[in-house]
């Protein structure tokens, strides 16, 4: 039996990133091979998720601050800070792992979209931390989004790194 649809949207669903990907794939499949058996849904991987990806942190936000806020949703099993690949300094994201799936869902509902260190943070269900994922994937070592930002964000290293370099060279 399919789950009954709520009268309003839920805030504890995986982000549009994951669902959009899934929808695209389904549509694709319908067009190409209408009779194929559906493959396991990516959301299934998240159905017991206890880990959250937390984004839009300030580079200066500490583990203690994150603990203080996120433990309001349950005991934290593990906290992995996102680091600049080269500098090994915080680069504005982290993974928070709870003991239960329910705590992770509650965190989506109650903490996602609120402020930490005076920035609105975003949370997303995550299939679980794996070694290596703590590093930024941007060219200069941080997160990709910090490469090409054209407005100044003092909490995340000023201008985008790509622009900052240009600026430096131009001088």
């Amino acid at each position: 039996m399919p789950a009954i649809r709520s009268t309003v949207d839920r805030l504890d669903k995986p982000s549009s990133y994951a669902t959009a990907k899934k929808r695209r794939r389904e549509r694709h499949r319908e067009n190409d091979e209408p009779n194929r058996e559906p493959s396991p849904e990516p959301e299934d991987k998240l159905k017991d998720a206890t880990t959250l990806y937390v984004g839009n942190l300030s580079f200066y936000t500490t583990e203690e601050q994150i603990h203080e806020l996120f433990s309001k949703c349950g005991e934290i099993k593990r906290l992995v800070m996102g680091l600049d690949r080269f500098q090994k300094t915080p680069c504005g994201f982290c993974f928070v792992e709870y003991y239960t799936h329910q705590d992770a869902l509650d965190c989506m509902k109650y903490i996602g979209g609120t402020k930490l260190d005076e920035r609105v943070i975003r949370t997303d269900l995550d299939e679980g931390f794996a070694e290596g994922r703590q590093y930024g994937r941007g060219k200069s070592g941080g997160q990709v989004r910090d490469e090409y930002r054209d407005e100044f964000d003092p909490g995340r290293g000023g201008y985008g790194k790509a622009y900052a370099e240009e600026y430096e060279q131009g001088r």
Binding site: V8, D9, G55, R149
Partner: peptide, 20 residues
């Protein structure tokens, strides 16, 4: 359906917009 779209944008405080 009823506004299934959820915006996620790291840079903006989208929650302050008049939603719903």
């Amino acid at each position: 359906g009823y506004n299934n779209k959820r915006r996620r944008d790291d840079d903006n405080d989208h929650y302050s917009r008049d939603r719903g």
